[in-house]
Design a binder for these strands. Sequence first.
DNA 1: TAGATTGTTAATCGATTAACAATC
DNA 2: TAGATTGTTAATCGATTAACAATC
Lengths: 211, 211
Amino acid sequence: MIAALPQGTLQRLPQYLIMLKTELREGRTGVTAEDIGAVVQVSPSQVRHDLSVCGLEQEPSEAMEVQALIRLIEHAMGYDDVVTAVIVGAGQLGKALLSYQNYSDYGVEVVAAFDTDESLAGQEVGGKPILPVKRMTALCRRMKVHIGIITVPAAYAQEACDRLLEGGIQAIWNFAPVHLRVPEDVIVRNEIIAVSLGELSRALQEKRRND
Amino acid sequence: MIAALPQGTLQRLPQYLIMLKTELREGRTGVTAEDIGAVVQVSPSQVRHDLSVCGLEQEPSEAMEVQALIRLIEHAMGYDDVVTAVIVGAGQLGKALLSYQNYSDYGVEVVAAFDTDESLAGQEVGGKPILPVKRMTALCRRMKVHIGIITVPAAYAQEACDRLLEGGIQAIWNFAPVHLRVPEDVIVRNEIIAVSLGELSRALQEKRRND
DNA sequence: TAGATTGTTAATCGATTAACAATC
DNA sequence: TAGATTGTTAATCGATTAACAATC
């Protein structure tokens, strides 16, 4: 599956995946579009439409097979094509991301974290090393790392980004609250905590108003 | 500002805010819709439209005042109405979220984190305490906490959620990869790492194909 | 005045939903 | 067969973009 998925679909597929894996753990082997929709809070039409975009081939009238759906979605999301990543910044957030154990489920392999604080060098978190940042560019080049994950403070994010670009990185997952300047062929995804917090507090306020 | 903001607007406003605060730090006091759009990668029309939804009142022909825009967006996002939160699960991710220092910028106040591991109790991270989870429900009730942030492993997430609900929590920010069962008046926002990773690795694959 | 830029309305575009023929 | 459920097409809905009068 390689066609460009619509934005909405791209955000819902991982949710379906979580639901399907839960079903599988609980021993269910077949689900309907309605089952999925009920859990993920999406209309059955939407579910069928999304799966159809992924290229689902399914006998009508029969419930869909959980295993097959999982593989289908993993393929559509590109999880079966492994990309490598490094983390810049080994603070609390950097360590949390370093210690995460399920990257391989999503086709990502984190190689190491880097920090300017050399006293951290040599430490391991979740089996992954923390290294001095001055070794980062060379290591990225040598290992042809694809993704750089930036968890340094805002003031240092552009510099971290520039180093990653020198290392030949092609995509950046940025947790610092700044907009990075990059060549236009580099992909940037900003992870903005304020978006989530804002949605929650707005929803709370709306709710309060209706009580 | 209290009208329900469209989904897209809600996601872009925090990006504008980041851009505006950067401009302010660098000493600029006026920006145009075009300036904002160039940094955030959005059309000037879109920017004007979004700000108009927030209720912007502005003299045409003059650049907009950065300070005033910041206040406008903060108000529209509901950041000037403080809500309280607790974190369940003081692992790496829980600690990272506990140590985050800028919640107040987004109208959130994190009170404490809780963990079943009592040996963590008494520790502080970023000036906030870690407490035994058995004290959580009562504390939530007493302090009328609004938001529960779940960072426990998937297998314990539903239980953590149930405890929070007992404590009278009204909204949940869930980092565990499961769909929680909650009464329908409780707001749940699932934070799914796979969405971000998937978007990045898909974009990489598309790019590779075009080279 | 001419030029720049606004806020808002109307046109376009894309995404979601509903409808339905096809299948077991 | 009747009932359930599919994949896909057409209708609806909402969000983005373009156009433009208003303003300094």
